[in-house]
Amino acid sequence: MSETAAARKSEAKRRSKFLVIVDDTEEVRVAVRYATRRARNLRCGVVMLRVIEPVDFQQWAGVAEIMREEAHDAAEALLQKLAEQVNQESGIMPELMIREGMAREEILKLIEEEPDIRMLVLAAAPNAEAPGPLVTAFAQMAGTLKFPITLIPGHLSDEQIDRLT
């Protein structure tokens, strides 16, 4: 491989990003750690997305706006907390995104808008009958996406995740 081709390949890898969907579940910690460790090892980036689903209070517009602002503040605080952990553990500063809408649709929009996203990392709910709504939805769509989905068991310890990466 020529020096120029190697440089292009290295630059493409550096621009590649792992997408993690941040929610209020316990297993999100597992998805974030896995994505961060893989990104560090592959010299890629991490995008953490929090989707705020709409609240239906049409007759109480003021209440709906307050709830929306509170949800946005909570999302920002959670993303900042996770980003700090990611940076301390790996030296990576993840991109943080907050979107409003239905989770599945907003994730698909982001995937279309961000060509550098190369993998979606999700953690399955441990000890549950179903792995979670996003895992179920994206597993059904896996054949139509332009990159792989990595599904991590949500009960893994930090040590188990580190051995996988």
Rank of each mutant, 00 (worst) to 15 (best):
T150S: 07
A83D: 07
Q160P: 07
M97K: 06
V51K: 02
E65R: 14
A31W: 03
K17V: 05
A142H: 09
I52V: 13
I92L: 15
C44Y: 12
R29K: 12
Q140H: 12
K17N: 10
M48H: 06
N127K: 13
A83Q: 07
D56K: 13
A39S: 13
P153W: 14
K9N: 11
Q59G: 15
I152W: 03
E95Y: 11
L156K: 05
L19W: 01
I52W: 11
R29S: 12
M48L: 13
K9S: 14
R33Y: 09
T144W: 11
K109Y: 03
Q80E: 15
V32A: 07
R163H: 01
R38L: 14
V30N: 02
P131G: 10
V51N: 07
A7W: 12
L79V: 08
V135E: 01
K146A: 09
I66R: 11
H72E: 11
E84Q: 15
V46E: 02
L110E: 01
A77S: 11
R15C: 06
E100N: 12
K81L: 00
A142L: 04
V135I: 06
I152Q: 05
P94Q: 09
R8Y: 11
P148Y: 08
P115L: 04
A142E: 09
L96G: 00
P133D: 08
P54G: 11
V47W: 04
K9H: 12
V30W: 01
E11Q: 14
M67S: 06
V121F: 02
E84P: 00
A35F: 05
R99P: 08
R8N: 07
Q140D: 10
V47T: 13
Q80S: 15
E159I: 07
R14G: 03
L82P: 01
A128Q: 12
T150G: 00
G45T: 04
R8E: 05
T36R: 00
L151H: 05
A12T: 11
M141P: 06
A74T: 12
P54H: 13
E113M: 10
P133Q: 06
S157T: 15
G62V: 07
L108D: 14
A137L: 09
P54K: 12
F57G: 02
A137T: 11
I149S: 06
V51D: 08
I107N: 01
I98S: 04
E89G: 07
V22F: 04
A12I: 10
A6H: 11
M1P: 13
I107F: 02
Q88N: 13
P115T: 11
L19Q: 02
N41Q: 13
F18H: 12
D56A: 10
I92Q: 03
R14Q: 05
Q85C: 03
P126R: 14
P126W: 01
A125L: 08
P126C: 04
L49R: 05
L156D: 03
D73F: 02
G143V: 03
A125R: 14
I66W: 06
R33F: 05
T4R: 15
R43P: 02
H72M: 06
K17T: 12
M141Q: 14
I161H: 07
G91F: 04
L19Y: 03
A103G: 12
D158M: 03
M102E: 14
A123G: 04
L82A: 02
W60P: 00
K13A: 14
Q160C: 06
I152D: 05
P131Y: 09
M97P: 02
A123D: 00
L79K: 02
G91R: 00
V28A: 05
S16K: 14
